[in-house]
């Protein structure tokens, strides 16, 4: 199942992607659907695997994110 992590902007999403890549986690830039009518026009990362590790790395790097899975919550 695709896991989506929402970042503040497309710039932050690309920064997060590069940080994760250096740590061996692949991800893809994606548009994030709004949730309950809020948070539209968002960019984030589609992370196929190791979501927990990914979010841990992002937190360590000081990158703010909202993590969610399509249909699931972190």
């Amino acid at each position: 199942m695709d896991k989506l992590v929402k970042l503040a902007s497309v710039t932050e999403a690309m920064r997060a992607r590069d940080i994760l890549k250096k740590r061996g986690i692949d991800s893809k830039i994606a548009r994030i659907p709004s949730q309950n009518g809020r948070g539209s026009c968002g960019y984030g990362l589609n992370i196929k695997t190791e979501l927990s590790k990914a979010t841990e790395i992002l937190s360590e790097s000081g990158i703010k994110f909202d993590g969610q899975a399509l249909g699931d919550s972190l």
């Binding site: 503040a8 902007s9 497309v10 932050e12 709004s34 948070g39 539209s40 026009c41 968002g42 960019y43």
Partner: peptide, 12 residues
């Protein structure tokens, strides 16, 4: 192109 539902300018 970010957080368009927020009427305030981004602070980041």
């Amino acid at each position: 192109g970010s957080n368009s539902d927020n009427y305030s300018q981004p602070d980041f």
